[in-house]
Nucleic acid binder design. Structure first.
Lengths: 230, 230
DNA sequence: CTAGTTTAATTGGTCAACCAATAATATTAT
DNA sequence: ATAATATTATTGGTTGACCAATTAAACTAG
């Protein structure tokens, strides 16, 4: 799951729903202070822990800001937009595999494109080292981890920490999905070659070649996900 | 912050650091159970809450999995990869504005491209409605929220919930950045026209036109961020 | 000695009491 | 009456105790 908040805990979503309602019927104005944690907990007959979790989740998405010993305030945006945001948050759960893979493909392609522009000698050296370790472990269980590291180095070279973090979040989800589906159980020799092409493209700063190489590299996973969906 | 976890709480990062060390010196093997929350808390002279927060963060990134009344286990990937992941997590903080904007540009362009393929009549109707409300509030403070909603509808039409959630996470960060920088204080008439072009492109399913329109639409923000960086 | 059962210890999840900092109120001095 | 100060109440942050489920250990029957 991409969301940190596994909504099996119905108490937390109960709090979110209540805040949503308060915004809806005007009891909670945008930009104003929302009720104290204790008060809200008592009103909803729920532990304060759950209220705090809900607040933390809302703060993560920039909807509320909590001030120590003072209180929490909701963002000063119009209530329609607020409702939409909270509604989206509550619906975040169990992303479908295809969307995860599709997004990964997009981010990896952009990461490698940026890496072509921004990678320095040290990055390329790390990349070659990661690839070497990937080769060395090609017939061992460590292969998947080494592949993961290879892609992480590319993300690092993109000099965009946001993309890097997003890939960091997505990748484990994808992994957990396709260990159950028995994907990539047998290593393909083409992968080794594809990695090398990507390295060469980055080193020669030819972004179009690098991007197409990355697309090709992830194409098997992409079509696999597409088939799963249908 | 993109990260839910504001690392001003040094106790939590202390726990993360300790887990990192345990993996480093081999006390904690990949795939094995990690110490009980209480035990770890006592060892580090830290509240169990902080240990739980650290575990939750690690679970968010798929590094550990917590089982109720049983314990938590770390992912079964090689310790080198594990260290890299944890190290990345600890470094997540305060993304630079340019990376945020750059990533938004990428995601918005992909979202609108996918929307061209996948939007149904209902999506296009919502899009037109959102644009109408944007126009109606063009000279009011609500303009920024209506703009936000407009883009959210596009993300919705892309039928990719992962992209949608990522934009959901990024956008508030960007907003908070450029309210302090006094960006977009005065509305530009071109924005209205640009929105219309995007709608037309989606309706006529011409993805290339939609993507370039989106790029143009966000170009002012992009160059602004680029200047801030330099 | 082994298999099944019962008991005790350990675990993550939850809750309620406590802490220090803040905000609101009451009090006092001018 | 007003401003400055002292007091009280409220707040989020933190801690330790309790709960039910799980696991490990001890025990007993065969």
């Amino acid at each position: 799951m991409l969301s940190k908040f596994n909504h099996k805990e119905n108490s937390t979503v109960k709090v979110l729903q209540h805040i949503y309602d308060m915004i809806n019927d005007g009891r909670l104005k945008p930009g104003s202070k929302l009720p104290a944690e204790r008060k809200l907990a008592q009103e909803l007959s729920v532990g304060r822990t759950h209220v705090r979790n809900a607040f933390a989740e809302l703060e993560f998405y920039g909807i509320v800001k909590t001030y120590p010993q003072s209180g929490s305030v909701v963002a000063a945006i119009h209530h329609n937009a607020l409702q939409g945001l909270i509604s989206d948050i509550m619906s975040i759960e169990n992303y479908d595999f295809f969307s995860l893979v599709e997004t990964r493909l997009i981010l990896e392609m952009e990461a490698v494109r940026l890496a072509c522009e921004r990678a320095d000698d040290k990055d390329i050296e790390s990349l070659k080292l990661a690839h070497k370790e990937y080769i060395d472990n090609f017939h061992t269980p460590r292969r998947v981890e080494k592949d993961m590291i290879f892609h992480r180095v590319i993300a690092q070279a993109s000099r965009n920490d946001v993309i890097k973090s997003m890939l960091l979040i997505i990748t484990p989800d994808i992994l957990s999905h396709y260990v159950t589906k028995d994907f990539c159980s047998t290593p393909l020799p083409t992968d080794k070659h594809e990695h090398q092409i990507i390295i060469d493209a980055i080193e020669s700063r030819s972004s179009s070649k690098a991007v197409s190489a990355m697309r090709l590299h992830l194409d098997r996973l992409y079509t696999f996900a597409k088939r799963q969906k249908a």
